[in-house]
Every structure is written in structure tokens, then in C-alpha cells.
Write a protein that binds this DNA or RNA. Structure first.
Length: 633
RNA sequence: CGGGGUGUAGCUUAGCCUGGUAGAGCGCCUGGUUUGGGACCAGGAGGUCGCAGGUUCGAAUCCUGUCGCCCCGACCA
């Protein structure tokens, strides 16, 4: 029979103790509530001494499950839009993630360093993407010397570090003997996102692992690239996240090719286009399809070019309707963009949409859709009557180029605008009639189109981008003069790669991927604690002793242990346990102890195993070993 | 930056249309009864109703402005 020994609210002993202080009624109460001294200085984490502010209800501003759970489980608290405090429990997860990340990047050849997060703006002005990057950087107006106006800030907060690492490597590495090198850091990044959302998913301040590889030759850069790709794959596997590598757009980064690591999730803000047959997978921004078969011969012209009146017709849909009845896939859509100040044209089929990211291949630093005024100035007609038939463009000399998507070649005897308001042209044929400088892939791929590899219908799903790797080439090294001397005394720019893992975003992606109606289900390797000892009667000294003994066993087996020793009702403890999602729960309660048992339960399962006291230590160790092994050690 | 919404106690919110002393649940504090899946009873603390103007005898409520937040879009290294 267990002896009851209430350490907190017990009458006599504590009352005496409180009188020792001889204080007022208030200070006596405070003393009564102070923790038993025996727990202080103990390495085990006791819930009552820790801080896990759980919430029954979701805050109103959380929309998606992972965001709600981040808040409810007491992992983070919001300071302001896109700015979060990592609470003790959340910090523990971050620490686990960063440590695993560190191990795998090290294994992939990374060398850790630490760079400043406040950057002289000159580094960015000297770099190749200042125009695009300035908008999202937090800026610090002045160091206080008063020499600069507010329009020329001295410092920016770093959104990433190419502009810092490249000049560093330029001065420190000059010989091929010192190459290759791959430097990385794990730290805070600042991006003034236009619209922060979904908690840590798109934050203004976030934690990122960023790595930068420098190689003497392209082959080496490819090797570095794939070493990192493998490291990423090991990282995501170890943390229990399903992340798939997809081909990606290089965006403002520039560079030759890149992969994104995506965690499939409904709430992701990227579209993944993929084919199960061939394994093809790409971000929609980059995805291509086998719409135009290899060896496709353009349809032969059948009839002369002919202008016809189309009063009031300014949309694809209107031209599809009677009396014109031109199917959208037989119409040419002509879009006017402004690239670095000069207009250029993009021609698509009427049924296709432009994938703006694909305009990046044209090499403009900045581009945007033209305004109606700009369109009239160059084309001679308003939107809705535009076309690229030779001789119809009002001011062709102003154009920086006319680019057409490959798919327009599927059109034979199509219809396009006459660059004259209210008129279109029919029997338009690509080769014969259109003034096109270059064909390319500009259209947005839709699910159902043939896979470029297998020809099978492509599928699409949403994903969260948690990592990105780029083979950068020499864009930055040339700009910053990061060159080395080879064994022939020749100077060459280093071939770079850059790599990022959104660690804080990954934290949330793991939750998004691993939760149920009751709360988070942490993977073993990143769980803030791996074993929760749920002590239903913490005031019973034998039960407490048992909990601490079993906690020691679990720690020796390599697990992080949390003892829930709070004076709460069992229901509260179980609900909290499910909410914070500790993988293995061991319950010690009065009822079980009367039968001589404790209970073991995995968070991921409904099954509860009753374990007799003599077997408890062995079973606990075995369970930890099993979970640890299943997680890959 | 465009469109929509919202702001009331630590959290979730009612009240606003139709102006008349600001309510509830959770949480918190005190006492008691409970004690294996978010207990119960009694008592209590806590709100310049985002902020600034205006209308009015009187504003959480109506008007104007402003700020924050959320959603959609644009944007997204």
C-alpha cells in the first residue's frame, strides 16, 4: 500500500515552514507554492519546473493545423506578423533539427562558420541582384555618423549570404590547391515578406541553414551539388519528413539548375507537377510537358492571311463564341512585358497561361507586365487586338524581342490580333506569318498533359518548399572577382553552388505532415522530449520515486525524458500529452500501481501495453531501442 | 500594393444592424468537494471596447481618419 505524502499542499509541516519566514499571509502562501527543493538542480526535466503553456483553444489568427498546433502546444508565440518567439519546447525541437542538419551537412563536406547578419549595403549594391533584392531587405538607415541620407542606408539585414561569402572567399582563397570548399552556417535570416503567413511557414525572421560551395571546375561543382543533394536527402529522412526533390526554377538567383525539396501538403504554396511512371517531378514554375512531340512538323498553311472586323472583341473567350467560333487553342495570345525598361512580347496559345517565372530565362534583371499606355505605344493597338504578324506592329524597333512558346507551333491557320483596334487576322501561320525571334518554354503546365519523359498524364499536388539547392555557376564569383590560379598560372572564376534549408519552416512542415485530431505526433529524432512519464499522482512519494527511477533508465537508454509531475487531473495530463506529441508515454497511476503495473503507449498508436513493475525497466529500454532503431539510430 | 474581413479581459467570443451603466466560456486567484481522458460548488481579480477625431444630452454601437491582424490576389533567393 502506498503512503500518501503531499509535498505541496500538506498541512502541518509546511505551515511550520512558512512561519519560519514569519512573513505576512501573502508570503506564507508563496512559500507553500514554492517547489520542493529536492527537485532543484536535478538534470531531469520536470514539467512543473519547465514551461509549456498549452492552450485549449486555437488563437483566432491561426488557419492551418500546423500553425494552430504550434501555438496550442506552446512551441512558439507571436510577437508580430511573421515574428515569433521560440518557447522552451519549440526551441528544443529547433535544436534537434539544427544538430541533425549540422551532422549531415558536415558529412556532405560542409565547413561551418558564422557570418554577420547585419550587412553593409555596399555588398548588395555590388552584387548581381540588388535591384530584385532591395525590396525584401530590412534596411538600417544610418550608423549615426550623419554622413548618409535616409535614402542611402548603410546596412541591411541579411536575407541570405552570397554577397558576404563570395567577397570573403575572394580574399581568402586564391589557389586551386584550396579548392573545393563548402562553407555553411545555421542562423537567422531576415526577409521583409510582403505577406507573412501561416506562422513559421513564411516569416520575416527565420532560421536557415545556408551553404555555399566553391569549386575550380564545373565537374567539381556538380559533385558538390550532388553531395549536398544527398546530405539533404539524409537530413529529411532522419528528421522523419517526407521531402521530395523536384526540379526548380532558379529565379533571381540565376544559375544553371536547381532542385527544391518539397514536403507534400495541402497548405503548401507551391505546385508540384509529377509523373509516377517516370519519376519526373518539378515545381510548376519550372515544369514542362511533352505537348509538342519531338519531330513535330508545323501544319502547312492553307489559305491567305485575311483581316476581318471584330468590333468589341477583346478576349479569347469572345473570339471563341459565335459568330467567330475560333477555338482558344487556335488563337495566338500576345502579351507585352517590360524588361529592364524595354518592351518585349510573349506569344502563347489562347488556351495557355504564361508562367511568369519562365521569363527568367530571357535574362532581364526586372520585368513586369506593360501598362495599357505602354502597349499602345509599341503595338499601335489596345490589349485584345494584339498580334505579331510581320508588318503589323506599330513600333517594332522599340522591342527587346519577340518570344513564343513552343506550343504555338501546334496552331495551323490560327487567328490573332491585327494590332488595329477591332480587327483580327485569320489563316495565320507561325513560320509564314509571325515575326518571332526565339521559341522557348513559357507556358504554365497543367495536370493531365503528357509527361515529357514517359508521355503519361502529369499529376499535380501542393507542397511546402523546405530546401533549395542551386548550381550557381560563376555569376557571383565573376561579379565579385572570386578567382583562383590554376596549375598553369591561369586565373579562373570559381564555380559556385548555394544551398538552403528553411529549418524553422521545416519544423512546421513536420507538424503539418505529422499530426492528428488530438495534437502533434513528433518523429522520434526531433521530438522535444522522446519519453513522457505521465505521473498521475505526483504527491505519492513512491510513485514519484518510481517515475524518477524509470526516467533514469530511459535517459540511460538514450532518450530525452520529461516527467509530468504537475498537480493536475489525469484528463488534463493526457490531453496535454497528446497535444505536445511526445513519441513514448509511460503512465504511472494509482490504479495501475495497485495492480502492480505501469502503462506504455506510443503517441502514434492507440494501443496501451500494461507492463508489470518488475518488467518495467526492461520494457521501457526495449521500447526506446525499438523506436530509436526505427528512426535510423 | 489591390480586394474582402476583423479588432471587446491572458485566450475564444456575445453585444454593434436599431446609441442609454460591458456580458459569457476557458484560463487565473481563494476556500471546499473531487481525482485514469480537458471535474464540481462557492467566492474573487481582471476590460481607457486598437488609437485619434467627429456627431449626440449620451458612443463598444453611428461617421471620418489612422494603426494592427486575418483571408484572397499580386509578390516570394
Amino acid at each position: 500500500m502506498l503512503r500518501c505524502h503531499d509535498r505541496r499542499a500538506n498541512p502541518s509541516a509546511e505551515r511550520e515552514q512558512s512561519f519560519v519566514g514569519g512573513g505576512s499571509e501573502g508570503s506564507q502562501l508563496r512559500l507553500l507554492q514554492s517547489p520542493p527543493l529536492v527537485w532543484l538542480g536535478d538534470s531531469m526535466t520536470h514539467w512543473s519546473q519547465f514551461f509549456i503553456p498549452t492552450l485549449k483553444e486555437s488563437p483566432a489568427d491561426a488557419e492551418i493545423p500546423s500553425h494552430k498546433l504550434l501555438i496550442r502546444a506552446g512551441l512558439v508565440r507571436k510577437l508580430s506578423g511573421g515574428l515569433y518567439t521560440y518557447m522552451p519546447l519549440g526551441l528544443r525541437v529547433m535544436q534537434k533539427l539544427t544538430e541533425i542538419c549540422r551532422q549531415e551537412i558536415n558529412a556532405g563536406g560542409g565547413i561551418e562558420l558564422w557570418m554577420p547578419h547585419v550587412h553593409p549595403v555596399e555588398n548588395w549594391q555590388d552584387g548581381p541582384r540588388w535591384a530584385a533584392a532591395r525590396e525584401i531587405m530590412f534596411r538600417v538607415d544610418s550608423a549615426g555618423d550623419g554622413k548618409r541620407g535616409p535614402r542611402e542606408p548603410e546596412f541591411v539585414l541579411g536575407p541570405t549570404h552570397e554577397e558576404i561569402i563570395t567577397p570573403l572567399v575572394k580574399t581568402e582563397i586564391t589557389s586551386y590547391r584550396d579548392l573545393p570548399k563548402n562553407f555553411y552556417q545555421i542562423g537567422t535570416k531576415f526577409r521583409n515578406e510582403i505577406r507573412p503567413r501561416y506562422g513559421l511557414m513564411r516569416a520575416r525572421e527565420f532560421v536557415m541553414m545556408d551553404a555555399y560551395s566553391f569549386d575550380a571546375h564545373d565537374e567539381g561543382a556538380v559533385k558538390s551539388y550532388f553531395a549536398m543533394k544527398s546530405a539533404y536527402e539524409r537530413f529529411f529522412k532522419r528528421i522523419g519528413a517526407l521531402a521530395i526533390a523536384v526540379e526548380a526554377d532558379t529565379g533571381v538567383m540565376g544559375g544553371s539548375y536547381s532542385h527544391e525539396f518539397m514536403v507534400p501538403a495541402e497548405v503548401g504554396d507551391d505546385d508540384i507537377i509529377y509523373c509516377e511512371e517516370s519519376g519526373y517531378a518539378a515545381n510548376r514554375e519550372k515544369a514542362t510537358s511533352g505537348l509538342v512531340p519531338a519531330g513535330w512538323a508545323d501544319p502547312a498553311p492553307a489559305g491567305a492571311l485575311e483581316e476581318f472586323a471584330t468590333p468589341g472583341v477583346v478576349t479569347i473567350a469572345a473570339l471563341e463564341a459565335a459568330p467567330y467560333s475560333v477555338p482558344a487553342d487556335q488563337q495566338f495570345k500576345t502579351l507585352v512585358y517590360i524588361g529592364d525598361g524595354k518592351p518585349f512580347l510573349v506569344v502563347l496559345r489562347g488556351c495557355d497561361e504564361l508562367e511568369e517565372a519562365k521569363l527568367g530565362q530571357l535574362g532581364f534583371g526586372l520585368f513586369r507586365p506593360a501598362t495599357p499606355e505602354e502597349i499602345v505605344a509599341v503595338m499601335g493597338a489596345k490589349p485584345g487586338s494584339l498580334g505579331t504578324v510581320r508588318g503589323t506592329i506599330a513600333n517594332p524597333a522599340a522591342l527587346a524581342g519577340i518570344f513564343a512558346d513552343h506550343a504555338v507551333r501546334l496552331i495551323g491557320n490560327g487567328t490573332t490580333g491585327a494590332n488595329k483596334d477591332g480587327f483580327h487576322l485569320r489563316n495565320v501561320n507561325v513560320q509564314r506569318d509571325l515575326a518571332i525571334d526565339r521559341f522557348g518554354d513559357f507556358r504554365r503546365v497543367k495536370a493531365g498533359e503528357p509527361c515529357p519523359k514517359s508521355g503519361q498524364p502529369l499529376k499535380s499536388r501542393r507542397g511546402i518548399e523546405v530546401g533549395h539547392i542551386f548550381k550557381l555557376g560563376t555569376k557571383y564569383s565573376e561579379k565579385f572577382g572570386a578567382v583562383y590560379t590554376d596549375d598553369q598560372k591561369q586565373s579562373h572564376p570559381m564555380v559556385m553552388g548555394c544551398y538552403g534549408i528553411g529549418v524553422s519552416r521545416t519544423l512546421q512542415a513536420v507538424i503539418e505532415q505529422s499530426h492528428d485530431a488530438d495534437g502533434i505526433v513528433w518523429p522520434w529524432t526531433v521530438a522535444p522530449f522522446q519519453v513522457l512519464i505521465c505521473l498521475l499522482d505526483p504527491q505519492v512519494s513512491e510513485a514519484l520515486d518510481l517515475a524518477r527511477r524509470l526516467a533514469t533508465v530511459a535517459e540511460r537508454a538514450g532518450a530525452d525524458v520529461l516527467i509530468d509531475d504537475r498537480m493536475e487531473r489525469p484528463g488534463v495530463k493526457f490531453k496535454d500529452a497528446d497535444l505536445i506529441g511526445i513519441p513514448l508515454r509511460l503512465t504511472i497511476g494509482g490504479k495501475g500501481l495497485k495492480e502492480g503495473i505501469v502503462e506504455l503507449k506510443r503517441r502514434s498508436s492507440k494501443d496501451v501495453a500494461k507492463v508489470s513493475l518488475p518488467e518495467a525497466e526492461a520494457r521501457l529500454s526495449a521500447e526506446i531501442a525499438a523506436l530509436s532503431a526505427a528512426a535510423g539510430g
